[in-house]
């Protein structure tokens, strides 16, 4: 069964054609990266997959169930999204911010349980935030705040995870930590991950499939090794690239 299934999806924003008739099948344990130039609609695609925006046409299914037939709270249990930029609340502690990601799981009348509290603390410590747990989110640095948001994604515990530039603002070791550690764990747990990555080489290194948005509504997709060719990527980014090989890894740099 597919975790995330997209059939004949058409998306437009302000006259721009993001995709026409896109069909996409993400299996449990797969990690996909979405590539494309600035403004081709990568973020819009992710928001649509999260159910935050209605497509012009087509259907999205999570675990075989149509996204728009899910209750809004059930949807929050099945799919989580890390936004490119979070709006800062008036004032909230890191702990409370991560706890709010448990919202889809918390009953209105019973409130957070012991389990919810444990999950929140564990998610925070996985992101190395034990010390900052009680700090106001507004007082944290950009990278620390990003880690709080990632901890919230962990705590939400959805089977389909959408990440919009997850390593934004992160120090190098957190970038690699996240991409190596979290992605490995999510793969093993059978979750599906779709992420938008700014860094071409990180995307190629850490995802097993690529989806390229070409900007005219057409798309290109497939296994990373098949899609990531100098020719494809140069056309996609409209700039000539050159492939460098180091050991068994390939890197693409501007020619």
């Amino acid at each position: 069964m597919m975790r995330l299934e997209v059939q004949c999806l058409s998306l437009r924003i302000g006259g721009q054609n993001i995709c026409d008739d896109l069909t996409l099948n993400v299996k449990p344990g797969e990690v996909w990266s979405v590539l494309g130039r600035n403004g081709v609609g990568k973020t819009t695609l992710l928001h649509t997959l999260a159910g935050l925006r209605d497509p012009v046409g087509g259907q999205i299914k999570l675990d075989g169930v149509a996204l728009n037939s899910l209750g809004i709270k059930t949807r929050g249990q099945k799919v989580s999204i890390l936004f490119q930029q979070a709006q800062a609340p008036i004032s909230t502690r890191a702990y409370d911010f991560v706890m709010s990601a448990r919202h889809p799981w918390i009953s209105r009348w019973a409130g957070p349980t012991r389990d919810d509290q444990d999950i929140v603390v564990e998610s925070l410590s996985q992101m190395g935030l034990e010390e900052l747990m009680h700090r106001d989110v507004g007082s944290l640095s950009g990278g620390e705040r990003r880690r709080v948001e990632l901890a919230a994604t962990l705590a939400q515990n959805a089977q389909t995870i959408l990440l919009d530039e997850p390593v934004n603002h992160l120090d190098l070791h957190y970038q690699i930590n996240l991409l190596q550690g979290a992605l490995k764990k999510w793969r093993a747990e059978g979750r599906a991950v779709v992420m938008v990555m700014h860094d071409l080489n990180l995307a190629i290194r850490f995802s097993d499939h690529l989806l390229c948005l070409c900007g005219d509504g057409s798309t290109l997709q497939g296994e990373t090794s098949a899609v990531a060719t100098t020719e494809n990527l140069s056309t996609l980014l409209r700039y000539p690239l050159q492939e460098l090989t180091l050991g068994d890894r390939s890197f693409f740099i501007p020619a």
């Binding site: 929050g76 989580s80 609340p89 709010s100 889809p104 209105r108």
Partner: peptide, 23 residues
Amino acid sequence: FIVARDLDLLLEGDLRARSLGLN
């Protein structure tokens, strides 16, 4: 009192609140 947690969540922004299952 009943919607207190929802109010907390709404303060974190409309998109995030919606993605976390808030109408």
